[in-house]
Amino acid sequence: MPALQISIYASLLIFAVGIVVKTIKISRMPIHLRWDLYPIPHEKGKERYGGSRHEDSDWWTKPVRSSIAGEVKEIAREIFGLKTLHRYNRGLWYFSFPFHLGLYALIGLIVLLSTGALLMMWGVDFSADSASLYIRLIRFSTIVVGALGWALGLIGSAGLLLTRTLRKNYREFSSVSNYFDLLLLLTLFAVGLSAWLSADLSYDFLRTFVHDLISFSATGDLPMLIRIEISLAAIFLAYLPFTTMTHFVAKFFTYHRVRWDDSPNAPGSRLERDVVEALGNRVSWTAPHIATGKTWSEGAAGDRGEPGN
């Protein structure tokens, strides 16, 4: 099997394992104290202005009016519109939005290529001459979505890279990896766009490559630009889990488990059991007022943690 295919299998494996390990590591961190930040979109009827159950007298006696739809709406706005960036940093949004849109489009491209590849595996005629309207629609969508992905990604990453390089505010706080990430993506978008324009306008080469990947069959010869494109994609996939670009994972936790986590500690609840367990941790901080060696519960019961308190 060609090295190109093996590199894609390997990068997919690294990507999947990396993301899963990262997600598990974050989710297994200990319970933390509440650190709400409003507005919280699941506060039904109050999310619009940032209100909460604390606005209601005896709120603990009333049923929780939680809205999953509110959260879904907010998450969708955030993912597809970069709502927060649009509101607070419009200058950056003009590049970040096409950049992200480009990435989403390329995910769409992979889905469409995979769909085509699967249909090919099942013996469906997927050629440009296919009589099926659906096949032609998928072929056409693949071209449009792919073109948008490469172009938007290229514009966005170039803009972000320029912003980070030219504006002192960004430059002085950027790390080497910030530049490397953008440069890698910029190159990938540029090569992808060139490969499409020069060698694979109908995506037949890429679709065949995906087909061979899915069917575990050796792929044939590919034009040089497409080989470079695939190699870059493999490098990017394998590199991604080790970067801040996995903020798509982190964001779930920063939103759902921190700023939107307003779950009250109800008596007898699982949450209360977790809190009791955490309070059983021994304190190892060593300042004079800290009850070093005692548990958090014992320390909290004293006035400065001295013996006998």
């Binding site: 927060t84 960036l85 960004y170």
Partner: peptide
């Protein structure tokens, strides 16, 4: 999460 995922966007 704050230490690992800040993308230095200065927002």
């Amino acid at each position: 999460l704050t230490m690992e995922y800040c993308s230095q966007c200065q927002t």
